[in-house]
Write a protein that binds this DNA or RNA. Structure first.
Lengths: 216, 216
DNA sequence: CGAAGATGTGAAGTATTCTTCACATCTTCC
DNA sequence: GGAAGATGTGAAGAATACTTCACATCTTCG
């Protein structure tokens, strides 16, 4: 069941939305303040957060950043009474998934929710795919050695890698380089030499941490 | 070439040892104080550290801890003029690889160095094996899902995992659980339920970092 | 006790990944 | 220009990893 957190200071609106959304089969909670919302987010996960733009003690825009930090995977829909383009742009820039202006019609809200949930599903799929590929890439000692070499050497050419690892068949190295390239941890310079991507660099940090964990 | 750092406040002894070890084909540096030694360790790596027990400004025992933190992979051999069992035990407890008492004969020193280098090679092999196993374990989505389940649920039983993942054949889950168990990230309670090991918990942290990296 | 479910083993088959080899193209350097 | 080396592709075979199935044992509960 998908879960939604409604954040609005107006108790009546909260009640309406809760009834409506629960009727649609969503799991719902509501919070009357940003503080309360953050407390909820620390306890449990939500798929969607409906966030009113005008909250007592600061705009919802400030809350947006905090909520996103607390639940990076949650999709946040901003709701505002006074819609301006500027507000909308700012909200989207700060990471809101969508933007609705009051008064909105119920079907409009529901389609918006369905839309962001679809997006979430898609992104989750992508993420899973990416981590799968990255971890598969890291699972081979040969590939980890290649990465270590690139980590030290900055830019290294195919035959340098091949010889450094003491491999006779260079096509074997090509095979593993391709896998690393497809995983996005290495890339190829115009002059054909290989180097770590920014992502690859950070993956190496992670690998180092893992090595430390495993060596107690 | 294997490298050795000699830490002793007596310049004459340092000179002797340096000549001797360089003659044996080791790459050597020497430090007259713990501070100097730490400075070296920050710059570069050593395979072995020869550490005199009695250093001005504190015993070598204190230095031992600091040096080990600076270079976790270096093997430290403590050397002392007044050998006592207590000193030796304390040194080993604090992580010294071996213990020599002055005056020692040259062959004795050399065999000790060779011995700890052999140990290091062995441990390095073990470490490689461990990281290989761990990463292979993480490379399968099914196994990562199992880990996530255990991470949330603390203790979970086989059929709970099987059903939660929507798998019909429980022996498939058994297969993956065995791999996770062999990798040391999960263990089995007496009542047969599975849970993360301490190591597994830390590996999950690492995995979370990786996920964040890959979702930018 | 005995049926139903939980846990697990081992073997056989399937799918994937890895290696090897034959060959193609493109540089580099004399 | 052409020999030598660097880089790469694609296919076939070897090796591993994964799945499935048949079956064994051990709990649990009526």
């Amino acid at each position: 069941m998908k879960t939604i957190l409604v954040v609005d200071d107006d108790a009546e609106i909260r009640g309406h939305l809760l009834d409506l959304l629960q009727g649609e089969g969503y799991g719902c909670e509501s919070a009357g303040s940003v503080k309360e919302a953050l407390a909820f987010c620390r306890q449990r996960d939500f798929d969607v957060i409906l966030l009113d733009h005008l909250m007592p003690g600061g705009t919802g825009i400030d809350a947006l950043a905090e909520l996103r930090r607390a639940l990076p995977k949650a999709k946040i829909i901003m709701i505002t009474a006074f819609a301006t383009v500027e507000n909308a742009i700012e909200a989207i820039r700060k990471g809101a998934a969508d933007y609705l202006s009051k008064p909105f019609k119920v079907p409009e809200l529901l389609t918006t929710i369905r839309k962001v949930l679809e997006e979430a599903k898609f992104e989750d799929g992508i993420r899973c795919l990416a981590i799968d590929q990255t971890l598969s890439a890291l699972a081979s000692p040969i590939r980890r050695n290649i990465l270590k070499l690139l980590h030290q050497g900055e830019q290294v050419r195919l035959m340098e890698i091949t010889r450094a690892l003491g491999i006779d068949d260079h096509t074997k190295v090509v095979f593993h380089l391709r896998i690393l390239k497809e995983a996005g941890v290495i890339e190829q310079h115009e002059d054909k030499s290989y180097l770590l991507t920014r992502e690859g660099l950070r993956v190496m940090d992670c690998l180092k941490t893992l090595e430390q964990i495993l060596s107690e």
